[in-house]
Design a protein around this nucleic acid. Structure first.
Lengths: 168, 168
DNA sequence: TTGAATTTTCAAAACTTTTTGAAAATTAAT
DNA sequence: ATTAATTTTCAAAAAGTTTTGAAAATTCAA
């Protein structure tokens, strides 16, 4: 397989993959393109490579920046802005975990704690099941939360090198 | 807060939460409803509680069954089918991980292995960056895969009770 | 300043996904 | 076998999301 073909495949699959993870196709594709581009590239490069409009590129690069996965780069002597992506996959994963934890897990855990406080007849089957389910999810989520915190703080070598040996 | 109100909140939030995870809103809401229902319920119960059409319930319950999260239950003397959800959150999580690994991670790792095999000039910056990125993701994905396998096989108490102590 | 290059915005259009609901199929009791 | 209850299917409608593109805003060099 030639590079051009492989690159197209990678970008397209990464885009499809992204949609399963609540990220939109184009945002994932731009990310993929930046991940395999050794040097920073411009809005126009992205527009041309992916055949998408300027507005679309603008919107999605800003979203990638908000996620902490992409950076604007200023190149001396160049008027236009360039973009580049963090290439270290561990850092990419950590960053995504951090953001999703903040945006999704933390608010959910907060809500569940509130929902556990319902005032109701504890002899009622429905009340009992509700409290049990909600607190079960909250406890599980709390453990996951702790675990993710450790991962976010962990050093790559320590984690992948040593921790995963524990699991084997 | 009263049970009815808390239940409505739980269902609605769980639905919104689901959309961030590639699961459709209604499927997640049905799942939430079943999670807090102590006894099996019918299509009509679901239709009424969530205000959705029969076809919608039918489609989404079948999807939940395909994910291994919900079961059809036959109640003696009843003509209609009843549905019930696995209540053990650890099992729910394990099941979801198992399915997503099979549907998403495994095919992605397979593709990445293929893409690493491109024939190209290794002195070319673009080729080098491509191979480096793809193999970086593949390696990381491979570790995640191993880790998830251990989790899937692990016993709840062993995992939550002991493993998480290691992390602290 | 002025004006050309560049980026940003956002309403409307295109596209995608989900939902509906009525007809068809299935099931089980009589 | 017939019938009534129940479930399934699926084309069309509704809802939701993403993309476009042109106008507005910004930036920077001369």
């Amino acid at each position: 397989m030639k590079l051009t073909e492989a690159k197209a495949q990678f970008i397209s699959s990464w885009g499809a993959f992204g949609t399963h993870w609540g990220i939109n196709r184009t945002m994932a594709q731009i990310h993929a393109l930046l991940l395999v581009s050794p040097d920073p590239i411009t809005q126009d490069d992205i527009m041309e490579e992916l055949n998408i409009s300027r507005g679309n590129v603008n919107m999605n690069t800003r979203e990638l920046i908000a996620w902490g996965l992409v950076e604007r780069v200023l190149i001396p002597g160049e008027r236009r802005e360039f973009f580049t992506a963090e290439k270290d996959i561990w850092k990419v994963a950590t960053q995504i975990i951090k953001e999703r934890k903040k945006r999704e897990l933390d608010p959910m855990l907060k809500l569940l704690s509130q929902l556990e406080q319902i005032d109701g007849d504890k002899k009622d089957k429905n009340t009992r099941q509700f409290i049990e389910t909600v607190s079960g999810i909250r406890k599980f989520g709390g453990e996951a939360d702790k675990m993710l915190d450790v991962m976010i703080r962990a050093d790559e070598n320590w984690f992948l090198g040593n921790l995963l040996k524990i699991f084997k």
